[in-house]
Nucleic acid binder design. Sequence first.
DNA 1: CTGGACACGC
DNA 2: GACGTACGTGTCCAGG
Length: 875
Amino acid sequence: MKNKLVLIDGNSIAYRAFFALPLLNNDKGVYTNAVLGFTTMLLKIIENESPTHMLVAFDAGKTTFRHKTYTEYKGGRQKTPSELSEQFPVIREVLDAFQIKRYEIKNYEADDIIGTVSDLASKEDWEVKIYSGDKDLLQLVSDNVHVALTKKGITDIDTYDPAFLREKYGLSPDQIIDMKALMGDNSDNIPGVPGVGEKTALKLLKQFGTVDAVFESLDDVSGKKLKEKLEENQEQAMMSKELVTIFKETPLELGITDLGYSGYDHEAVATLFSELGFKSLLNRIGGTEVEDEKIDDLDFETINEIEAKHLVSPSAMIVEVMEENYHNAEIQGISLVNENGNYFIPTDLALQSQLFRDFLEDGTQKKWVFDAKRAVVALGWKDISLEGITFDLVIASYLLNPSESTHDLSAISRREGFSIVSSDESIYGKGAKRKLPEVEEFSDHLVRKAYAVYQLKEKLEEQLKHNEQYELFHDLEMPLTLVLGEMETKGVSVDTNFLEKMGEELNEKLSKIEAKVFELAGTEFNINSPKQLGEVLFEKLELPVIKKTKTGYSTSADVLEKLESKHEIIPEILLYRQLGKLNSTYVEGLLKVIYSDTGKIHTRFNQALTQTGRLSSTDPNLQNIPIRLEEGRKIRKAFIPSQKDWVMFAADYSQIELRVLAHIAQDKNLIEAFQHDEDIHTKTAMNVFNVDKEDVTSNMRRHAKAVNFGIVYGISDYGLSQSIDVSRKEAGEFIDRYLESFPGVKNYMEDVVTKAKEDGYVSTMLQRRRYLPEINSRNFNQRGFAERTAMNTPIQGTAADIIKLAMVQMETRLKEEKLETRMLLQVHDELIFEAPQDEIETLKRIVPEVMESAIKLDVPLKVDYEYGSTWYDAK
DNA sequence: CTGGACACGC
DNA sequence: GACGTACGTGTCCAGG
């Protein structure tokens, strides 16, 4: 078998990785994005290429032999950002762990090393593959030597052999040098011939073949100006040629046989990944997380009989529910840590003890927990009302660090410098292998968890106070978590029969549409497979390709809509998609999660997930039940009150985000519009298009609405152009005109970005934070995204704060008024209740009152409400 | 079991 | 001019 040598341009790939990935740092605060990208690519190369030999070449130092020719070589180049340069040593560590040779040599560049080595290997008839982001290397392409260039990011790669190079540029490998000599290279400060770009260079080479030939027959060059430029810059072009030519006789101290690669040291790599916090890569190589050193022993007592001395206030407590979904779930054990000791209590013993139940239900006995809602709901299903929770570690961690991907106890404690506890995954396993461990290991784990909570409570509260977030934590999020627990436990009643009937009707319609699609297509295929659908539409039926995805043709709705008039199959497919979605996600999906004994659905609200402070909902997601299209909206008829003669009551904030914006930005025009309760989209259209109210057309209003939408969600000119199908330029003009009409908003947008650049984070009115490390990035994309986030998060986040306040106050008010009405759901700007008929008049009064007065702004908050026999009718 | 494409809500 | 563009969750398919 032939030897296969893989050569990697280390600097180039590291740069690519750095700019392609967001500026991640691991839990030690060290930047790792370039390392992560580099390593991901390395693994991929090893998997795909199975090389027998490998080498990573790096540039060495600042000056090279090329500087003798041209002192300005690579001049004007921005200094390597320190966030990247500090990652190079780590990349070297990775390579060492992988047992891959790396090499650099003074005065030469990585290119030269690669050129020299590939030449040697090629002569021995080895197969050579070069990985880089630099087109210069294409000059090395030959039958033996193929070059893989990153296109964008790091995973998108083109591999060049001589044929592909010809196809792409119409050039031979040698001519790459000629091309660069003519067009120059901005990034290396290679001048070339001014005024000659890629197009002209290609044209000239097609005609003459080489740079030398161009200058030999200058008279044959068409275009007077071009001829002049070439004449003036002949010397410069020849020098450029010299600069871009890769030097193939670099004095190497190693031979190609020294580059043997025979796999990596699995343990060394796993340890390094674990240290760096590369969980997904660790998973990929099948390693398990190496736990930090733990405190050796934690003494604890397994209780046989519960006594008063075990139950003191305050206690850190873990009520362990292993299942992800804690509704109606088994409690596997309980642990307590307090001033008297560390205890493990078997579940049966605990729940049979009246003493213990009284302790749980006694609000004066303070409990510190991890994931209060989980404990409250799990116990709630057993008719135990857990009271007295004053601290939840999940919530504290989320407020302090919302961007953290997990708020599991092990990670939090490690972050805070206490390596007290292992991750649940390492103790319980994951996926199908998840199971309850032996009781010794299990009890130890539970006690450690409680111990961690006990230790960390003070520390995190300090941090919250330092950030001025303690009120947010104590007065809002902590009470809210209990309110959410009650909502989840109560659940929403669902009309199973209705859903089943709807399912039957949908299935009938779907099979009819399917038959029609097959007939029109002239073949049977899976309409749900974008791949198969793409083949039918764009190959078999030869419809024009509007957009492509990474993996093939795009068949998304916006693409199909553009093809609607081209073929009668398209509307059928769109309808099939729409009804299929309804059937699988909503009809079948909801039926699956109904608890058959009660006919209810119990969602879970995640309070520690979104970056903006909103809630999310899972199992099922009740925050995305259809409403826009009538067919889908019918799903809402399945949501019914849990008792006879009760009704569904829904109340929503009108334009809460724009009202918040008016207040925060203190924009006079916007404030005035809301004070007079004007139609805000019409008002926006009047300002943006500079017309009177009577002259606002429906199209203007539609565009204005999209602009408002964009302001609220922080989309870009591109995003806006997509949503209203205008050019990007027009969309940009809309935004500019909007900002001119609302100067307060414009000022706010500028100020908030400036402040974010100084502080590194933005805040909502209630001091919720979002950190934006990328706001000072040199990467256009990352910075732009961070800037839009800076503008948008205080708005959306404050709106989230407000409805959360309203929820806490609403729950209190319902109790005060001794109403039976129950709050069931929150959908971002909307609250849904079920209520006895005779409480409706009261609700009509107090719901808007509570919601509108949740916070005082300089504009009024406005709430609309409706009620009816199903959620559909409460519209 | 995972990632991509798609679609639903705000 | 780059480059990829609000936040979520769930479903299906296709690949390993």
